[in-house]
Design a protein around this nucleic acid. Structure first.
Lengths: 253, 253
DNA sequence: GAGTGGTCTAGACCACTGA
DNA sequence: CAGTGGTCTAGACCACTCG
């Protein structure tokens, strides 16, 4: 009756994975290389056969690992060409993080205007969200996004100071394109995923003036916490969206 | 120089798939069976080996088809048990369509109160969204959702009349659990995916009274168009969310 | 122990890209 | 044309569930 049970030496009721498939381990290794910058954003990573040889596994196992990375938008596959490190400087990746659409469907020119950029000690709630130690410095940016020259979004952004040493209002203003592109190329910080909390709020006087609405007008508040590869938070953002002629689009499936 | 080109008999510059992998075709066949009700929600579908035999393909090809269906939440895989048709009557599937969270994380009791349920000709905008012919009938439902007995969501719902013949306020009130569960078990209509448009709006007097807020208070407006298997729209819903103590949660990746 | 989904392999071939 | 990712197969074995 009593059979030998060598693999179950630990408490079987305890939590824990106790088994990690090979392709998961390969995925972790590739993610580490991405994080370490072995391949830069936009660059091609080694072919599946190369990686299979490097890790001493079959091509199919590497394939499954890369499939998972592609699902998470860490890399992009292009048949016939190769697999490429995802980059925020690509046009087609824009609406992954900015879900605002114009009522008429027009995706006309987007411009950004920096209102303020300063360094300060992290306020308590910001420090908590960014998992900083009390007293750590942050960079605070306030900026407006304009669609066809009309202000629609007012963003307050907090960034860990130690990751964004040379960031100034000038650097931000000079840069054309999405802010995450600047973060990626200039500071090596890549936003991978984020959680957003949406609410309807009344415009305070300052926001009302910047967005050209009446004080008390309803605005969509979007609080976003962005994370990088290892799930460490690297940005807290509070946006106020004027949704009179735009809407936040979401797909449920 | 001139080689034979039998497979490219059509204009090569024209759009079109011109190639559909086997697993895609299998996926389509399985989806048809789901739509036809060959397996009911919650039931187990045939095993991978059975389906492979039925369709005369390898088990790996069936596997890839089912993987895609699982990604789209049409079926749920459970190792050691089988693959099951997704159902809205499961507790863990709730927050896929209701993204509202309480600030304190409490997911306490949710109750629903039907305010009104009537049949009428589809208003122009509703008919257009639901892709109905002018003059077609719709069922309109107005209801409130309460979290811990506090009204938080006011929903106006429009449904194609011909799909919901016996639907009355009584049927709605009697049913415990999410409305989509009732639609699925009583009317055979299954919501598969949806698009939502979010805005901040000011509460009108009627909504303000039902949600127990002041007129003009900011509310989150959520307009949802739900679709079934063949992407045909089957529900239009306009929700007003009081986000004073709740927020709409979204994940970006 | 039988049945299910999950992993891993090795190999063949197809579709796409670009030189 | 060579090189890439994409598909398909067949078979072996593993992990999980349940009677």
């Amino acid at each position: 009756m009593v059979s030998s049970l060598p693999p179950a030496a630990v408490d079987p009721a305890s939590e824990g994975p106790a088994f990690s498939p090979l392709y998961q381990q390969i995925k972790t290794l590739i993610t580490r290389s991405l994080q370490a910058g072995e391949w830069r954003p936009g660059e091609m990573i080694p072919s599946e056969t190369e990686l299979a040889a490097r890790y001493k596994v079959s091509q199919g196992t590497v394939r499954k690992a890369i499939d998972a990375l592609a699902d998470e938008n860490l890399v992009m596959r292009r048949q016939g060409k190769g697999t490429f490190v995802a980059t925020h400087t690509e046009q087609k990746i824009q609406f992954r993080f900015l879900r605002l659409m114009a009522d008429d469907g027009d995706t006309g020119n987007v411009t950004r205007r920096v209102i303020d950029c300063r360094r300060l000690r992290a306020p308590a709630d910001v420090g908590r969200a960014l998992e900083l130690k009390t007293g750590d410095g942050v960079v605070q940016v306030r900026r407006v996004m304009l669609f066809r020259s009309v202000p629609v979004v007012l963003d307050d952004i907090w960034l860990p100071g130690h990751l964004f040493k040379g960031l100034t209002a000038e650097r931000l203003s000079e840069y054309r394109g999405p802010m995450y592109g600047l973060f990626e190329t200039e500071f090596g910080v890549r936003m991978i995923r984020a959680e957003e909390q949406l609410r309807a709020v009344a415009a305070d006087p300052a926001a009302a003036e910047l967005l050209n609405v009446k004080a008390g007008a309803p605005l969509l508040s979007v609080e976003r916490l962005s994370r990088t590869y290892d799930d460490k938070p690297v940005e807290l953002r509070r946006g106020l969206y004027n949704t009179e002629a735009h809407y936040y689009r979401n797909e449920l499936s």
